[in-house]
Nucleic acid binder design. Structure first.
Lengths: 205, 205
DNA sequence: GTCTATAAGAAGATAGAC
DNA sequence: GTCTATCTTCTTATAGAC
């Protein structure tokens, strides 16, 4: 891989663990296998590296979001697919979403960087909330709304349904970011949650 | 208030917003209203201030946890209190917990500091998970278990019930930490969540 | 594009007067 | 206990050879 791209990858890895300020230009260079001054041939400053990571992410996100049907723009189309949703379908969808967010290396590192930088940088706070709250809520709320309207699920507030479906996934993801070794303990709980959710909301038509 | 204590308060405020590394000794001194060198008469280093904040928190937590019945040690006693729990009781308990966590100035600042320092410091990661996951889960799981056993709520997995009850509170708290102005939008959703939860799990005896 | 050498400045901490 | 002055170290960034 070319050096310019490798700098971004190593910098993201370091920023996600130690935060922007505790990563020194020499650390990034060392991870790439060059000396610090060489790095300035590729980026004009440390801040420039950070900005390039953000730009790269913005390019990636819309693609991934639409791939995962997470952007809330096409929920009505997706609801057709889910109109005959079973408990197993919901488990598959929820576990797939959870596992992707939790294990995709790039997604995980970027989320951890957002986590530790969010209060210093309002832009990152907005990105975090959009990617991990607003977008999932908006998509899932639309989906549960359709499923309720179709009688597949009970006629309850779809915003609340989305909150109750997604929050456990989000919360356990944050725990696993801190303690990857506890993943084994929590994965079964996620599946039990989704099955219990499905049972509780099963329509009575 | 004495200077030694004020240093801790101002340092916590700064650490919670900017993280340990981006807060300079001069910033803390300035917030207190003294010059940086004076600060070394009270603490021997910047790290010493951070450690003192942690020690102070450890002294506070057990008291507050037992006050809030959050430590999971006396759930059986509390379940008696809740054995005749109504939807309004559950709303009161959930909203009280949420509002306390979200608005208590000290609790909020300490949580934000844990958030931004968690990946650098394994001790902080453990404290975060204990205070915001393990302790609430253990208490609530015991409580819902009792309420299920007493027929007040359906006989479902109490660990999952605790996860589904508490995760939305936790997740919305993290959103409000980033965007305090969105609190007005989310508080009604929290209440709707608790009422919907209560209705879904209401026992059929 | 990578290196060594180094400038420029920031930040933690100490010395010593008051 | 607070101050001014200062030391030391660390960190970003540049200069210039190869």
């Amino acid at each position: 891989m070319n050096t310019k791209k490798r700098i971004l990858d190593e910098a993201l890895t370091l920023f996600s663990e130690k935060g922007y300020s505790d990563v020194f230009v020499a650390d990034i260079a060392n991870a790439v296998g060059i000396k610090a001054p060489s790095l300035y041939k590729h980026y004009k400053s440390k801040q420039d590296i950070f900005d390039a990571i953000l730009d790269e992410m913005k390019g990636n996100y819309e693609n991934k979001a639409s791939m995962l049907n997470m952007n809330g723009n096409n929920a009505s189309a997706d609801a057709m697919v889910f109109s005959a949703v079973s408990e197993d379908d919901l488990v598959k969808m929820g576990m797939g979403l959870f596992m992707y967010f939790l294990h995709d290396d790039y997604v995980k590192k970027f989320r951890k960087m957002l986590t530790v930088e969010q209060f210093k940088n309002p832009d990152l706070a907005l990105i975090f909330t959009k990617q991990y709250a607003d977008d999932p809520f908006s998509y899932q709320s639309a989906m549960f709304g359709m499923l309720s309207a179709g009688g597949v699920l009970k006629a309850e507030n779809p915003d609340v349904m989305a909150l109750q479906f997604y929050s456990p996934l989000f919360m356990i993801m944050t725990i696993c970011d801190r303690h990857p070794e506890r993943e084994r303990e929590y994965i079964p709980l996620i599946e039990q949650h989704i099955r219990q959710f499905s049972r509780l909301y099963k329509g009575e038509n």
